[in-house]
Write a protein that binds this DNA or RNA. Sequence first.
DNA 1: CTGAAAGCGCTTACAG
DNA 2: CTGAAAGCGCTTACAG
Lengths: 357, 357
Amino acid sequence: MKGIAKLASELGISTGTVSRALNGKSDVNAATRARVLEAAQRMGYAPNASARNLAKGATNSIGFMIELNPETASNSDNFFMGVFDGVQSVLMQHGLELLVLPCPTDADPYHYLQRFVARETVDAMIISATQRIDHRIDLLQARGIPFVSLGRSESGAGYSWIDLDVEGVVNESIDRLVAHGHRRIAVTVPRRGINFAELFHASYRSALARHGLPYDPALVIDTAWSELGGYEMTDRLLAVPDRPTAVVLIYEMMALGLYRRLMELGIQPGRDLAVITFRDEPALRFLSPSATCFRMSLHDLGVAVAEAVLAQLPGHRTSPAAPVVQMRWPMVLRPGESDAFTLPPETSRSRVKPRSA
Amino acid sequence: MKGIAKLASELGISTGTVSRALNGKSDVNAATRARVLEAAQRMGYAPNASARNLAKGATNSIGFMIELNPETASNSDNFFMGVFDGVQSVLMQHGLELLVLPCPTDADPYHYLQRFVARETVDAMIISATQRIDHRIDLLQARGIPFVSLGRSESGAGYSWIDLDVEGVVNESIDRLVAHGHRRIAVTVPRRGINFAELFHASYRSALARHGLPYDPALVIDTAWSELGGYEMTDRLLAVPDRPTAVVLIYEMMALGLYRRLMELGIQPGRDLAVITFRDEPALRFLSPSATCFRMSLHDLGVAVAEAVLAQLPGHRTSPAAPVVQMRWPMVLRPGESDAFTLPPETSRSRVKPRSA
DNA sequence: CTGAAAGCGCTTACAG
DNA sequence: CTGAAAGCGCTTACAG
């Protein structure tokens, strides 16, 4: 004998009563409940998850799918760790378990997700690394699984998502650079990638248009999502005809490579080239000159994501909040030295002077 | 009707036969199996995980517990993402699922783990962030749960662990620095933390002893596990009486803060102070002067961990390998410029010259 | 307040 | 090769 049956027989009561005592049902004698709780504690008993889930028709756990492929995993750094903690802080209060599901490099994200969905391993999902066209969203909607997407997609409609406010970041960056006299502003945009890159690109175009500046495809630099990507794109950036005087990086860690290559070339960020990076990151804090970037709370983002999930779970709805959440997560400018100069009108071109020809 | 019963009734056969067909049992008519497979595919059917686990008495999933607290999470960077991918590459071949279980900052790791263990949510566990005394190991051994520890502990005995070869790294670092004429070699060791820090400290002492060098507690700098920790400890490092000429960093990212502070002080790593960092990391590659560190494959480490888990799972043992794996994962020196100088005998002291008094 | 019993959706000896 | 049935360990109406 094992499990609840063993507990019950030791106590000389029925498994039903044990179950009710353990689950905090009100119709249990106080003394009985105390005995049950004590015995469970003493014997290290906890209900078997599979049996419990089967009986209750719910798993009480939320899946959080992340991708391990280099393109998005490099982006992970401490990003997801911070978000997990925020998510957990909410879920724990509701007795829900967070299961992080890492999709391997060589697996198809759609099929990876499908397994968990079809097998009903989780009650709800959080997905990330959203693609422009992302069939995972169609799948989740078709199956009626509650989910929140950390990132937007053009797939589906009326689903909950929370995404970093790329538009805000790009707009503020471009406004700031234009105000400093820049006209030739480059951006780094990985060619293939998550929808985030598309949004970044589109925001860039519209921000330029708002300022009456022409869109020059040559200023959109294809770059790998990594420190190394930042290093490797530097020469291409500087080789663009009518050399750009500023660059906005889609991924913060690219700044490390960019800075290094600029230094090797004798070009000084913040004097010869304005640089704005994306998200404030501990590893960036020690760059010199300090990098202008945008900060946000990973923890709070996680909290918001978890709350958006709860809003879809019957029995966990805290407030009469709308079940569908769609929001861009605000990011706040953290001015640094890397773009702290104004371009004199007459020299607004070819201000970048490499040490050697 | 739903699930396998629905599938069976649509096909006009029993659920038993459907189950056998789906599970690849040999005693099923080929045509029947084909019909079942086709229907399952078409209807997007997959067996309910809870019911299946309950019936089989196994979950076919492996938990990987990580901790989100700042001390270890900062260390996580891309470390765990790389390891997960290696683990997955092995588990997928065995039809096992990897569930990452992130222990929240404000939760007790022991109780967090206990829930999953007592509820039989997973068939085996991988734990990390091992403490010197770590009751999780006692718990897992007492319950007879197969597990592998990514890191050693003084708790328990005869369990499987794989740990980075701290001893090797420290020995090689000290040998190298001593060969370059250094006698006053500092190390950064967080005061409270995982067992890793204890091992680092102990290795340092024994390496010094091997060279007949005295152990000076003042050379053991208490440092936070972060980039900022590296920045903040720099002044204390330089203020140690009979100033050290070299430092070995326990956590690679500390180098970012250290470099920055040294630069502010006009002190040049690799000329005025020898620096050796721990693990090779993309973010370090762009430091100038380049940092001497140790490289390893996160993916291969993950593979080894997964194989150590499989060795304990009946039915998954690939080779007649010993069930208990205990190994230090080798790390290979990647020489950089940060320690590429030899101390002249006569100036082996007070070689560090700050710009200002 | 408690017990007996059905049921959650599977898998698997056991017959045939 | 297939079906009927028991059983996995819980939870929860339903009686009493």
